[in-house]
Deep mutational scan, measured.
Amino acid sequence: ETKSLTLVLHRDSGSLGFNIIGGRPSVDNHDGSSSEGIFVSKIVDSGPAAKEGGLQIHDRIIEVNGRDLSRATHDQAVEAFKTAKEPIVVQVLRR
């Protein structure tokens, strides 16, 4: 079962304390579909994302501050987090 969660993150020394993997390839599949998503791959101990109620590894990131990342490329997702103003509201899907 997958549930949708909304989390609020604040940077600590400029970092949110997690890494992402995935992202849509720069070239779409011929039918326009994509199974890619942006997923949390690593969480830094005691970083902002590790706090209670924070992110978990394998969370799929859907949205950052209202910006849809469900079909974003990896670079677009990285840029969305880099430029996001605080508080950073992150919507994820968690299995």
Rank of each mutant, 00 (worst) to 15 (best):
residue 85 K to H: 10
residue 55 L to P: 04
residue 7 L to Q: 00
residue 18 F to P: 00
residue 16 L to W: 07
residue 41 S to F: 02
residue 44 V to Y: 14
residue 4 S to E: 09
residue 85 K to E: 09
residue 95 R to I: 06
residue 12 D to P: 05
residue 30 H to D: 13
residue 69 L to V: 10
residue 22 G to M: 09
residue 87 P to L: 01
residue 15 S to T: 10
residue 1 E to N: 15
residue 73 T to L: 03
residue 66 G to V: 00
residue 51 K to L: 09
residue 14 G to W: 03
residue 56 Q to H: 15
residue 45 D to E: 15
residue 9 L to N: 03
residue 49 A to P: 08
residue 94 R to Y: 01
residue 69 L to E: 01
residue 95 R to H: 12
residue 66 G to M: 02
residue 12 D to G: 06
residue 7 L to P: 02
residue 63 E to V: 06
residue 59 D to A: 00
residue 69 L to C: 04
residue 11 R to Q: 05
residue 6 T to H: 06
residue 55 L to G: 00
residue 10 H to E: 14
residue 31 D to A: 11
residue 14 G to T: 07
residue 15 S to P: 03
residue 6 T to C: 06
residue 34 S to K: 13
residue 55 L to D: 00
residue 65 N to G: 04
residue 91 Q to W: 02
residue 21 I to W: 05
residue 73 T to F: 02
residue 18 F to E: 00
residue 19 N to A: 06
residue 93 L to T: 08
residue 47 G to R: 07
residue 73 T to P: 03
residue 55 L to K: 00
residue 71 R to Q: 13
residue 60 R to K: 10
residue 84 A to T: 04
residue 85 K to C: 11
residue 51 K to S: 10
residue 67 R to T: 14
residue 42 K to H: 15
residue 53 G to V: 10
residue 3 K to P: 06
residue 14 G to V: 05
residue 4 S to I: 13
residue 58 H to V: 01
residue 39 F to E: 04
residue 24 R to N: 13
residue 43 I to K: 02
residue 89 V to C: 08
residue 66 G to R: 04
residue 30 H to G: 10
residue 45 D to Q: 09
residue 17 G to R: 03
residue 62 I to Y: 03
residue 22 G to K: 11
residue 38 I to V: 08
residue 72 A to R: 01
residue 66 G to N: 05
residue 58 H to Q: 10
residue 26 S to H: 14
residue 78 V to I: 09
residue 91 Q to H: 12
residue 30 H to A: 13
residue 14 G to M: 07
residue 95 R to C: 07
residue 68 D to C: 05
residue 18 F to R: 01
residue 92 V to E: 01
residue 69 L to M: 11
residue 65 N to C: 04
residue 65 N to F: 00
residue 16 L to V: 15
residue 12 D to S: 12
residue 9 L to M: 13
residue 32 G to W: 09
residue 73 T to S: 09
residue 59 D to N: 01
residue 86 E to P: 05
residue 33 S to L: 11
residue 88 I to C: 05
residue 2 T to K: 15
residue 61 I to N: 00
residue 13 S to C: 14
residue 8 V to Q: 13
residue 84 A to M: 02
residue 25 P to L: 09
residue 54 G to L: 11
residue 26 S to Y: 11
residue 21 I to L: 07
residue 36 E to G: 09
residue 53 G to W: 05
residue 33 S to N: 13
residue 43 I to S: 02
residue 57 I to M: 08
residue 14 G to H: 06
residue 53 G to F: 06
residue 21 I to P: 01
residue 95 R to T: 12
residue 75 D to C: 07
residue 88 I to M: 06
residue 59 D to Q: 01
residue 10 H to S: 13
residue 24 R to A: 13
residue 31 D to S: 11
residue 75 D to A: 14
residue 37 G to W: 02
residue 85 K to T: 13
residue 84 A to Q: 03
residue 7 L to H: 03
residue 24 R to E: 15
residue 59 D to F: 00
residue 47 G to A: 12
residue 42 K to R: 13
residue 55 L to Y: 00
residue 29 N to D: 14
residue 59 D to W: 01
residue 41 S to P: 00
residue 25 P to T: 09
residue 21 I to G: 09
residue 21 I to Q: 14
residue 94 R to A: 00
residue 54 G to Q: 09
residue 91 Q to N: 12
residue 57 I to H: 05
residue 47 G to S: 13
residue 94 R to H: 00
residue 14 G to K: 05
residue 19 N to W: 05
residue 84 A to K: 02
residue 94 R to G: 01
residue 66 G to F: 00
residue 68 D to A: 03
residue 38 I to A: 02
residue 49 A to C: 10
